[in-house]
């Protein structure tokens, strides 16, 4: 029994330390240590360590940008994209150290350098934001207990709306009253037209659910028993639609951050080359 437990502990330790993440982390640490140590030695010898850190930073940024190219080359039989992702995250975080060892200040002087610094910071912030989204959004989506493909959301909402309208018409025909129909046209229709309460959904609020409950309760005492049954059906569909809105909100965010991160990074790269050109012409 004791030996079995020891085996499990050994296996767990092995899983923790002997995996690809640790390999990437360790190799990055070694690489950065060597670069920074060399830069430090150059500084000690009154050399220009900015050249070493600057070119290292350039290569790291190129490597980071290449990740997007690799992702588009889906059939490229070179290293799984998940490994690239891990490397991208590790290198992305460590390049902040390299950046400060190169710039040696929070905000450099000169319009070009300031623009470059701002783009670098924005790129890092959007990257970290994306990492945060990637780590939190999937779990939140799973917990909604429905699964829906983003591109299908408009058609699913349209289907839900059709179902609700059929129920409304059936209710009006059967009961010869227009109470529910009127409520739908005046109020509920707004909810079923397109995704609603997106910001609230993103921050984990329950505004959508609350709104649906409110709007269905407010009409209850005008309805007879038969109409109430139809209202229950509509309420169920509304809650389902509320979950779709939740998916729409979160899935939009998990895609949208890339529309910030990638253009900012590309702009930064352009300025990096401009910076490289200027430095090589005037400074070195």
């Amino acid at each position: 029994m004791g030996a079995k437990k020891t085996n499990i502990v050994v296996k767990k330790l092995r899983d923790i330390f002997l995996n690809i993440n640790m390999l990437f982390l360790a190799s990055t640490l070694v690489l950065y240590f060597l670069i920074l140590y060399y830069a430090y030695r150059v500084d000690l010898l009154l050399g220009r360590s900015e050249i070493i850190t600057g070119y290292s930073l350039l290569f790291v940024i190129l490597f980071l940008i290449f990740f997007n190219v690799r992702k588009r080359l889906t059939v490229l039989p070179v290293i799984k994209v998940s490994h690239w992702t891990k490397l991208h995250i590790v290198q992305g975080c460590f390049c902040i150290i390299l950046y400060f060892s190169h710039v040696k200040t929070l905000m450099p002087l000169g319009a070009n350098e300031i623009a470059l610094a701002i783009l670098f910071y924005l790129s890092v912030i959007t990257g970290l934001l994306g990492y945060f989204f990637n780590k939190t959004i999937p779990r939140r989506l799973t917990e909604s207990n429905i699964e829906i493909i983003y591109e299908k959301i408009p058609s699913v909402i349209s289907d839900v709306r059709d179902q609700v309208e059929k129920i409304i018409i059936k209710c009006a025909t059967e009961n010869n009253t227009d109470t529910l129909t009127r409520h739908y046209v005046e109020t509920l229709n707004w909810f079923f037209v397109k995704p609603r309460f997106l910001l609230n959904h993103f921050f984990g609020g329950q505004q959508g659910r609350h709104w649906v409950d409110n709007q269905t309760q407010s009409i209850q005492h005008f309805l007879n028993d038969s109409e109430k049954q139809y209202l229950i059906e509509i309420q169920k569909l509304a809650q389902y639609k509320n979950k779709i809105d939740f998916h729409y909100s979160l899935q939009s965010c998990s895609k949208a951050w890339l529309f910030l991160h990638i253009p900012i990074s590309v702009m930064m790269l352009i300025l990096v080359f401009w910076h490289l050109l200027i430095v090589n012409i005037y400074a070195i």
């Binding site: 992702k71 889906t74 999937p138 989506l141 799973t142 998990s254």
Partner: peptide
């Protein structure tokens, strides 16, 4: 699904 960001890179 706790890891999947629904990017559809797999489908692509």
């Amino acid at each position: 699904l706790d890891k999947c960001v629904r990017c559809d890179d797999c489908v692509r």
